[in-house]
Simulated scan of single mutants.
Amino acid sequence: MAVMNKAVLHQVAEYFKVLSEVSRLEVLCSLKHGAKNVTQIMAETGLGQANVSKHLKILTQAGMVKRQPHGVQVYYEITDPTILPMCELVSRGLANRLEFQLQEFHSIL
Results as ranks from 00 to 15, higher is better:
Arg97Glu: 12
Glu104Gln: 15
Ala95Ile: 14
Pro85Gly: 05
Gly63His: 10
Thr45Leu: 11
Met1His: 05
Leu19His: 02
Ala43Gln: 13
Met1Tyr: 05
Tyr76Met: 08
Leu25Cys: 11
Ala2Met: 07
Leu89Lys: 02
Ile58Glu: 00
Ala50Trp: 02
Val18Gln: 07
Arg24Leu: 04
Ala62Val: 03
Ser23Val: 12
Val27Lys: 04
Arg97Phe: 06
Thr39Tyr: 04
Pro81Tyr: 06
Gly48Phe: 08
Met1Leu: 05
Glu26Tyr: 02
Cys87Asp: 01
Gly93Asn: 12
Ile41Ser: 06
Leu94His: 10
Val90Asn: 03
Tyr76Asp: 08
Leu59Asp: 00
Gln73Ala: 13
Leu19Cys: 06
Met1Ala: 10
Pro81Arg: 02
His55Phe: 08
Gly71Cys: 08
His10Ile: 09
Ala13Pro: 00
Ile108Asp: 10
Asn96Thr: 07
Ser91Cys: 12
His106Ser: 11
Arg24Met: 07
Met4Leu: 14
Pro69Gln: 07
Met86Lys: 01
Ala62His: 03
Gln40Pro: 10
Asp80Glu: 13
Arg92Asp: 12
Gly34Lys: 01
Val12Glu: 09
Ile58Lys: 00
Thr60Arg: 06
Val74Trp: 00
Gln49Val: 11
Ala62Asn: 03
Asn96Glu: 15
Leu31Val: 12
Arg24Pro: 11
Cys29Thr: 03
Tyr76Ala: 01
Ala43Met: 14
Phe105Arg: 09
Val72Thr: 13
His70Met: 05
Met42Thr: 06
Ala7Gln: 09
Ala50Thr: 11
Asn37Ala: 03
Lys17Cys: 04
Leu47His: 09
Thr60Met: 07
His10Cys: 01
Ala43Glu: 15
Ala7Asn: 09
Phe16Thr: 11
Cys87Met: 13
His55Asp: 14
Lys32Ile: 09
Val3Arg: 12
Ser107Leu: 15
Val12Ser: 02
Gln73Asn: 06
Ala62Gly: 02
Val3Trp: 05
Ser107Ile: 11
Tyr15Gln: 07
Val74Ile: 05
Gln73Phe: 09
Pro85Ala: 02
Met42Ser: 06
Met86Cys: 07
Pro81Gln: 08
Lys17Trp: 00
Val38His: 00
His106Asn: 14
Ile83Gln: 01
Glu88Phe: 12
Ile78Ser: 04
Ala50His: 07
Cys87Phe: 12
Val3Glu: 12
Lys17Tyr: 01
Val12Met: 11
